[in-house]
């Protein structure tokens, strides 16, 4: 019997900060071409989990395997599969859009000459063609996020991690970003792990994981979460599950 393939497998992750237990026995699996939304209030441990998946922080116990590579022992193989958009902007404000993208391309060992046309095409599709030689400092928050998204996909990762990517964006930009991710998921066969505290962003997810105080309190499709909470709206179900815990 063939073993099911997972893009991300997290098993029994625990993380302490001093005596504070930030994550307790976290287990989750992400299949190829799946959008999983990790939903949780502020301080739930979403960013800590994100840091563990990206190898920025080591878990105290448990394992995190990305496309068959353990992030702790095979970090290079694991990181090759990841495209990351962090919650905090991670783009160099002093470089132009093009310089930032080429910098990222070189860090990933991509051939810059063949990428220039792809970069222009991506910027065109995102309405940023006129900003190509502008310093990122002069871009709006939404435009910077778009550049970060283009950057995270340049090396054609198999999985996209997005840590509260809509923080600071207006409703229109939020909706645009979510729509773009859904399109990318189907067009590029991407697996996406999206963390957020905004319930409406989880509406179109294939799977929703609700995290609170470092523990997973519910996991399932939207339909399953609604039935678990016996509610008809996801926002109400989320609040109920968090309060009941």
């Amino acid at each position: 019997m063939l073993k099911e393939k997972f893009m991300l497998e997290i098993n029994n992750i625990k993380k302490y900060y001093g005596s504070f237990l930030a994550l307790n026995n976290i287990c989750l699996k992400l299949k190829p071409n799946q959008l999983v939304v990790l939903l949780g209030p502020n301080g739930a441990g979403k960013s800590t989990l994100f840091s563990i998946i990206t190898g920025l922080v080591r878990a105290d116990s448990g394992s995190c395997v990305i496309n068959g590579n353990n992030i702790a022992s095979q970090s290079i193989g694991a990181l090759k599969n990841l495209g990351v958009v962090f919650q905090q902007p991670t783009i160099d404000l002093e470089l132009t859009v093009k310089e930032n993208l080429l910098f990222h391309a070189r860090l990933h060992g991509l051939r810059v000459a063949s990428l220039k046309k792809i970069i222009e095409k991506e910027l065109n599709e995102n309405g940023l063609e006129k900003k190509i030689n502008k310093k990122v400092r002069t871009l709006s928050g939404g435009e910077r996020r778009k550049v970060e998204l283009i950057r995270s996909l340049l090396h054609e990762p198999k999985m996209l991690l997005m840590d509260e990517p809509t923080v600071g964006l207006d409703p229109r930009s939020r909706a645009d970003l979510l729509k773009k991710i859904l399109n990318l998921k189907s067009s590029k066969n991407l697996s996406v792990l999206w963390t957020t505290h905004l319930v409406d962003e989880a509406e179109k997810a294939d799977k929703i994981i609700i995290l609170d105080k470092g523990e997973i309190i519910a996991i399932g499709s939207k339909k399953e979460i609604l039935s678990m909470a016996k509610e008809n709206k996801l926002a109400k179900a989320f609040l109920k599950l968090v309060e009941e815990k």
Partner: peptide, 14 residues
């Protein structure tokens, strides 16, 4: 402080 370090530390190189 600007967050660029996170990008540098998540590059698939040692």
């Amino acid at each position: 402080e600007m967050g660029v370090m996170k990008i540098l530390l998540t590059v698939p190189l040692p």
